[in-house]
Simulated scan of single mutants.
Amino acid sequence: MELSATGEPVVTQEDTQVDVGLDLQAGTLVLAQEGADLVAYHALVEFAALKGQPWTAQQVKFSAQGPDGTSVALVVDLLNDACDGPRDGLPAVIWRVVALAATYAGDVGITYAPPAS
């Protein structure tokens, strides 16, 4: 394949929302809802930055397997009702999922080095 390229790419952050998906190892996160254990296998964390503010995690959407083997979706709102801070009473493991997603998003130290030419 013949390829040529020129220019100097510049990135602008116009998106105010970024979703980061994580595939979770089976059995590492169990969510309990209405007495049923749900084994989470995927989390989609929604980050937003409004009007030049820092990025904030707003919501986590979990895909899980219910006790009968069916797939279940569970949405956890991370912000309080006034949307000015974190929601009280969320389990610490939910915030660990958010921290993992932030790492994958590059906010907490993901680095990349291009191949040596």
Rank of each mutant, 00 (worst) to 15 (best):
G7P: 01
G7D: 03
G7F: 02
E8K: 15
P9V: 07
P9I: 00
V10G: 14
Q13V: 11
D15A: 12
T16E: 15
T16S: 15
T16R: 13
T16H: 11
T16M: 11
Q17M: 13
Q17C: 09
V18P: 00
D19C: 04
D19G: 01
V20Q: 04
V20A: 11
G21V: 08
G21N: 07
L22P: 03
L22W: 08
L22Q: 04
L24R: 08
Q25C: 01
A26K: 13
G27L: 06
G27H: 09
L29R: 11
V30Y: 08
V30C: 00
V30I: 13
A32F: 05
Q33M: 10
E34T: 13
G35N: 01
D37Y: 08
D37C: 02
L38G: 05
V39E: 10
A40Q: 02
H42A: 15
H42D: 06
A43N: 02
L44K: 14
A49F: 00
A49G: 10
L50Q: 15
L50V: 15
L50C: 10
L50D: 15
G52W: 03
G52M: 08
P54G: 12
W55M: 09
W55C: 07
T56M: 14
A57Y: 04
A57G: 11
A57H: 05
A57R: 03
V60N: 05
V60F: 06
K61I: 13
A64I: 00
A64V: 06
Q65G: 03
G66A: 04
P67T: 11
P67E: 12
D68R: 10
D68G: 05
G69P: 02
G69M: 06
G69L: 03
G69N: 06
V72N: 05
V76D: 06
L78M: 07
L79C: 06
L79T: 10
D81M: 01
A82E: 15
A82M: 08
A82N: 03
C83N: 15
C83A: 15
G85H: 04
G85Y: 00
G85M: 08
G85D: 09
P86E: 12
P86C: 09
P86D: 07
R87Q: 13
R87H: 04
D88Y: 02
D88G: 08
D88H: 05
G89Q: 01
G89T: 00
G89V: 00
P91Q: 11
P91C: 12
P91T: 04
P91N: 12
A92G: 10
A92S: 11
A92I: 07
V93Q: 04
V93R: 10
I94R: 04
R96Y: 11
V97D: 06
V98M: 02
A99Y: 03
A102Q: 12
